[in-house]
Simulated assay, not measured.
Amino acid sequence: MERKLILEEMNAILTAYCDGCLVKSSLRKEFSKTYAHQFCIQKCTVGEQLRKFGNQLELKKI
């Protein structure tokens, strides 16, 4: 996949699922910003998908 397409796909996912996420906002209020961020990266299915795209971008860099 081309770098620009990957970035566009990531942006679409962030806009559709992450903006206004109730889970993230409640975790930020209950615990902390860092805790919510780690949850998104490690446990959220959307975060896993974004991480895969990030790995593809990293490979394109080399």
Rank of each mutant, 00 (worst) to 15 (best):
Q56H: 04
T15K: 14
H37I: 00
G47R: 08
A12D: 14
R28G: 00
V23S: 05
I62T: 04
Y17N: 13
E8N: 12
V23R: 01
S26K: 05
C40R: 07
S32G: 03
K24C: 13
Q42E: 03
L5H: 08
K43Q: 11
K43N: 13
L27C: 06
K52Y: 09
E30L: 07
L27P: 08
G54Q: 12
Q56V: 01
G47S: 06
N55T: 12
R28K: 14
K4N: 11
Q49M: 05
E9F: 03
T15H: 10
E48L: 10
K29W: 00
G20L: 05
A12R: 14
A36S: 09
A12L: 12
I13Q: 08
I13Y: 03
L59R: 13
K4P: 00
T34A: 07
C40D: 02
D19Y: 10
Q42S: 05
V23K: 08
M1H: 15
I41D: 06
F39W: 12
A36M: 01
G54V: 00
F31M: 09
L7K: 15
L57Q: 04
D19H: 07
E30K: 10
M1W: 08
V23P: 00
K52M: 07
L57N: 02
C18E: 06
A36N: 00
L57H: 03
C21G: 02
G47H: 06
I62F: 03
A12C: 02
L22K: 12
H37F: 12
G20R: 02
Y17E: 10
C18F: 01
Q42F: 01
N55C: 01
I13C: 05
Y17G: 02
K61F: 09
Q38V: 11
C40N: 05
Y35L: 08
I62E: 10
L22F: 06
K33F: 04
C40H: 05
R3C: 06
E9D: 14
Y17P: 01
I6V: 15
F31N: 09
S26D: 02
L27K: 10
E2R: 12
K60S: 11
F39D: 03
K60N: 09
I41E: 06
Q56E: 15
S26V: 01
R3T: 13
K52L: 07
D19L: 13
L27M: 09
Y17H: 15
C44Y: 04
